[in-house]
Structure formats: structure tokens, C-alpha cells
Design a binder for these strands. Sequence first.
DNA 1: ATATTATAACTAATAACATTAGTTTTGGAG
DNA 2: CTCCAAAACTAATGTTATTAGTTATAATAT
Lengths: 191, 191
Amino acid sequence: MSPRAGLDTHTLVLAAAEIADEQGIEEVTLAALAAKLGVRSPSLYNHINGLQGLRSLLAVHGLELLYAAMSAASVGLKGDAAVHAMGQAYIGFARQHPGLYETTLRAPEEGNPELKKASEQVLSLIIEVLSGYELGAEGELHAVRGWRSLLHGFAALENKGGFGMPLDTNVSLNRLISTFIAGIRSMSLRE
Amino acid sequence: MSPRAGLDTHTLVLAAAEIADEQGIEEVTLAALAAKLGVRSPSLYNHINGLQGLRSLLAVHGLELLYAAMSAASVGLKGDAAVHAMGQAYIGFARQHPGLYETTLRAPEEGNPELKKASEQVLSLIIEVLSGYELGAEGELHAVRGWRSLLHGFAALENKGGFGMPLDTNVSLNRLISTFIAGIRSMSLRE
DNA sequence: ATATTATAACTAATAACATTAGTTTTGGAG
DNA sequence: CTCCAAAACTAATGTTATTAGTTATAATAT
């Protein structure tokens, strides 16, 4: 019963993130979001650029939270410890915010500068942590790709329930990270 | 202008897979599929169980093709060569059928026996190839999880254009596979 | 205090989609 | 040649996103 519900973009993004995490990314519709906020869906257009715009905002928000988690976890650490901490933080974020994490890689727009910036922030943190190993400029880039593949694959499969087997996934993650570290160690020695 | 267009389930799945690979998974709608087949969308219900049913069929079809590719690539090979060949085949399939690959992990139904069967087929092939390393029963399961994570993560990031850097992704893949192998080697020695 | 204005939220309307109900038509079995 | 199961159809409903145009209010200026 109140024109002027007092919404703003940030409130919308937070509410949408909640829907994504609690009900799944498919349920993030303007209709559902408007209902949650006690408003009619066209009203949302005063704050966001349609559904696509909302998805972009969600992606940026997710990447910022992911960066914060990874950064906080690895600050002050070096080498293997930093890699482990960062990997745990990455997967921890994906577990805590499954829907929001998923929006992170649903790259909708190519030219979005906010999105690009948020992605690069995460990327440079990864590069920094892996720079401790003697991989060379090119080897480092390959290692970054591998590290991202590994983390994203693990997060995605775990979230989808792809690891059906009754075996502690934390142990799997730890061993996988150790495997990766051991692998890049042996790669760097080989060259 | 012809009642009796002569459709069947398989034709629908193939046409839907084409849409998925050429236009993206979002464009796989019953409306688009019906248009492609020269039919009205309600007619599709004679052959599939709605959009959800079609998605399940796509997932099964994708897993079967994936299995065929992996199997053909690794037949007769052992050890590192088999792992490399299987990995290349997995990524090759994801590149060749980006949309179909994506449906593979959009697990819609839990209790679908066809889907379960197709998944287990792929899984047992992976287990077989990794059984050559001395990992122990539990270690082998962790390695399987790691191997799947790595492959899926790489496929997903590459498909989404997540590897923005101008560096040959085939080289990255080769090195990643080698890194993984080196990693599980050192893990098995450690215990 | 009162008038003005920018804009948040609204109603109404359209288009795309999935889905169900009920009808028509036809290819093949008898 | 007849008949029937089922393939394809039309019609209708409900959900969604989105646009156009309207109303009402909060903040500002007078």
C-alpha cells in the first residue's frame, strides 16, 4: 500500500542473490524478485536494466565476494600454504553461495567494464599466489588456467551433486590441491 | 501442410542437439524446435515429456557421445598415454558439442535410470584408466574426483571464453594433464 | 508553508513461451 | 475397404519479460 517502497539497486541485488542461493539460479526471475520485495515487476526497471542487467550485477557482486573471501584467506601466506588457503576459500564460497557462484560464470555481456574489473581482480590474486613457483612467464599462465579449471570444476561438480560417492569431499579437495602443487613443482623442475 | 510429419523421439533429440550446439543452450525451446521441424509445439508432446523430458534425453545423448569419444580415444592404451588420450577426447567433445556438453551436467532429474546408466558408463571408463596408478581404493576415488574436476573445469571455462589470454589452449591442456599425472604419481609414492 | 519537480511505483498491454484439453486426420492393421 | 490408435492440429490458459503511459510522493526550491 505504499508507493515509494524505498528500493535501490543494491537491495535488489542482495534479494536476488538470496533467491539464487536458496532456490537456485532458475528461480531468479523478475516476477519472483518483485514478489519478494512487495512490488510489481515493472517497478524493478527503475533500478536495474531488465533481467540481463540484474544478472550482470549478480555476477559482479559474486566476484567481489569471491575475491574478498580468497583475499582474506591468503593474506600473509606464501607458497603451498597460500595456495591451499585460497583453494579452500574458493570452494567454501561456492558452497556457501551456490547460486551466486553460478552467476559468476554465466558471462552475459562481453563489454561490461565492472564485470571485467571484478574478474581481473580475482585473476590477479591467483597470479600472485602462483608467482612463488618458478614457472616462467608462460608456464605461469598455463598454471593459472589449470588452477582455475581445477577449482571451478570441483565447485561445479560438487554443487550439482556430481560426486555421488560417499567419501569426504574435503579430503578430496585437499588431495587435489596437493596433487596440483606437486604437479607444478615437478613441471618447473623439468624445464 | 502434412499431418503425419513422421517425427520420432530420436529425430527431436538430434534437432535439439543441433540448436544447442549452434545457438546455445538457452535457445533450446519447444517453440524453436517445433519451428525447425515444421510442426506446432504441442505436437512435440507426442514424442517427449515436455521440455524437462527433452533436456533429460539431451543429457543422456550427450553422455553417450562423450563416452563413445573417450572410449574410442583410449582403447588399447595404458597409463599416461591413455590418460592423455582420454583427456583430449573429453575436451574435444566439449569443443565440438558445446551445447550438448552443457546439458550433460544440468542434472534435471535425480531418479532417471537412463541418465544414471550413461553417467556410470563414463565414470567407470575413467576409473579404469586411472586404475593403472598405485593409488589404493580410496586414493583412486579421490583421483577420479580430481580428474573429473579438472576436465570439466577446463571444458567449462574454455567454452565460456574464460581463458581470455592469447595463449594456445591445447598447450595449456597438455600441460595440465601432465601436471595432474605428475601429481598423482608423487601422491602415490608418498604413501 | 506551499508550490514544483524528478522519479518511484503503478496499471495496462503485448509478445514469447510451456503446457493442457479436446479435435481432426491418416497410415496401417484387420 | 473399414476402422482405430496415435500423430498433428487448434484453442485456451498461465507465466514470464518488457514497454508505454499514468499516478503519487519525497525532496527541493520558492
